[in-house]
Each structure stands twice: as structure tokens, then as C-alpha cells.
Design a binder for these strands. Structure first.
Lengths: 147, 147
DNA sequence: ATGAGTGCAAACCGTTTGCAGCTAC
DNA sequence: GTAGCTGCAAACGGTTTGCACTCAT
């Protein structure tokens, strides 16, 4: 992603265009996998020289709240972040070997909503769906990238 | 759940039958909603007199590892536990108002697995699906139970 | 110039661990 | 008797906060 695209995102969110914000957006935009806050921190430090971890958290949080990036909660109690250009409702397939993230078109929640409405008259308001597996490349013997 | 049922579960897992373990299983068995470790702790203390929070964590962890109870990770970084007698593959509908949990039969993941296999040759190994909403009773004006 | 952004250190808080004493078997 | 259980206090680690300083606008 060009720096100008990052700046446009920030202006749309009425956030000041600062080097740290641009660098973090660029960092996520060039990754094909989700990153922890510390992983973002270490990557961004290489280019900015210095940036505090709290700043990384603050910026990631702003971007996640604005739905510019996707936040994933994993069972190790850490939060991971992923920049996805697809704004329509969709879910992700996460490769357990290389941590690459793929978009999914199928949601499959229509049937569930119907089941709930028919059975008890309830209503679905949101859902969390994450698919884990091994992607095609990793299935074919590629060893993958360490986490 | 009777105490004897709890004892049977523990014997099956080759764990010693202790009052704390029995009490925790009973506590979860009589709840219709998921509970945090601290919520289990406060309920169980009423009947046991004294029990340490680390013990509650240890026992909940054992039971979750053995798949006797279900562990849910929410975005507040806390873990919640729920005892579900249904052992087949299924998911849960969680009411946002009263925190009651219902079993779902629909999974809807077959279509997703097909999509992944067809598109990139990948393979689905696991998935996390949680449906949030408002249950029938709460939809009909019942105010629900606070978290 | 001024309010938003940032670094640093310290707090936070759910969870885990080490170890001594206790209990089911 | 002994291996496993439990309580307590302390540590852990990812994340958040308070506050003084700095920078984009």
C-alpha cells in the first residue's frame, strides 16, 4: 500500500497523519498473515527507529475500532491484527502452518439464524467464526513460515 | 446433576474424587449459562466454605482439557466455562441479554470446507463458531439476567 | 498556538506457578 | 503410605493508563 492510501484512511477517520500511523498501516498492508501487537512493533521499529509499544496498541486499537483492520482473539489470550481490503461481510481461513489468512465467501449463518428463529423466536445479532486449517501450499509439502 | 454422576466423570478421567471437584461440576451442571472462573469461585465458596481461586482454575482446566466442559474465549480476555451434556459436534447460541446458552444443530461448515478445498486445495482442521443474539424469552420483553 | 499524538514507567488484572501441607485412595 | 490435591503468596505477561513532552494542523 502506498503511503498516500494510508494517509487517506487516516484523514477519513479524522486522525492526524503521523509517521507511526502510516508505518503501522503499511506494515499490516504488506503482510499476508495476522500479527500480534509485538510483531507489529518489531517490524515497525526497523523503519522508524523508535516507537513505544503502548503507541502500537493505541494505533491498532483505533484502526480496529474503525474496522480498518480485523482483530482476532486467540486462545493464548493475545490479540492479532490483520488488514483486509474486503469490506463485505466475510470470514477468514487461517492456515495453522504459515498463518496466512484467506477470505471466505461462504458464511453459512443463514441456516443457523433460521434454526434459532424457528425454535425459540430468538434473534442472531452477531457471530464470531474462525476457520483453522492448512492451506493448499502447505498441504503440498511446503514447510510454511514459523509464527 | 447428582453427586454420583460427577464422581463417575472424575473416575473416568482417573482424577481423585474430591469435594472441590464435585462442587465445581455440580455448579456448572446447574447453570444454564457460561461462567467465568471467578463466578464459579464465588458460587462454590458458598457451599464449600473455602476454596482457592487457583484451585478453581486448575479444576476448570482439567475438565476443559478432557472436554467435559466447554471453554469460551471472549474479547474481554477472560475465559468462560459451560457444561454441555451434548457430546456431538455442535455450536452454541449465546443470549446477550441473559447469557443463556442454547445448543445449535446447524453447523454450516461443510460449505466452507468445500470452498477451501476447491479453491486452494487446503484442508480445514478446526473452527471456532459462536453465535450471539437475543433468545426467544428475552425478545418477548423479559428483561434478562445481568452478567 | 493548541489539541492530538507519543514515550516512558508504572499499574492492571486474569491467569499461572512454586512449594509446603493435606487428603483420597 | 504415597501420589495426587489444594492453599497461599508471589510471579507472569499481555495490555492499559497517567502524565509530561512533542508534533501535525
Amino acid at each position: 500500500m502506498e503511503l498516500e492510501q494510508g494517509a487517506a484512511i487516516l484523514r477519513r477517520l479524522k486522525l492526524k497523519v503521523t509517521p507511526r500511523r502510516l508505518e503501522i498501516i503499511c506494515c499490516l498492508a504488506t503482510e499476508y498473515s495476522f500479527l500480534s501487537a509485538e510483531e507489529v512493533w518489531s517490524r515497525v521499529r526497523l523503519r522508524l527507529g523508535s516507537i513505544g509499544l503502548p503507541t502500537v496498541y493505541r494505533i491498532l486499537d483505533e484502526l480496529a475500532e474503525a474496522a480498518v483492520i480485523t482483530r482476532i482473539f486467540l486462545s493464548n489470550r493475545k490479540q492479532y491484527y490483520f488488514l483486509c481490503s474486503n469490506q463485505d461481510h466475510h470470514h477468514h481461513f487461517v492456515c495453522e502452518s504459515c498463518h496466512r489468512v484467506e477470505d471466505l465467501e461462504q458464511c453459512g449463518l443463514d441456516a443457523v439464524s433460521r434454526e434459532i428463529a424457528q425454535r425459540s423466536g430468538g434473534r442472531v445479532t452477531s457471530h464470531i467464526l474462525q476457520i483453522n486449517g492448512v492451506c493448499g501450499a502447505c498441504c503440498q509439502g511446503h514447510s510454511g513460515v514459523a509464527a
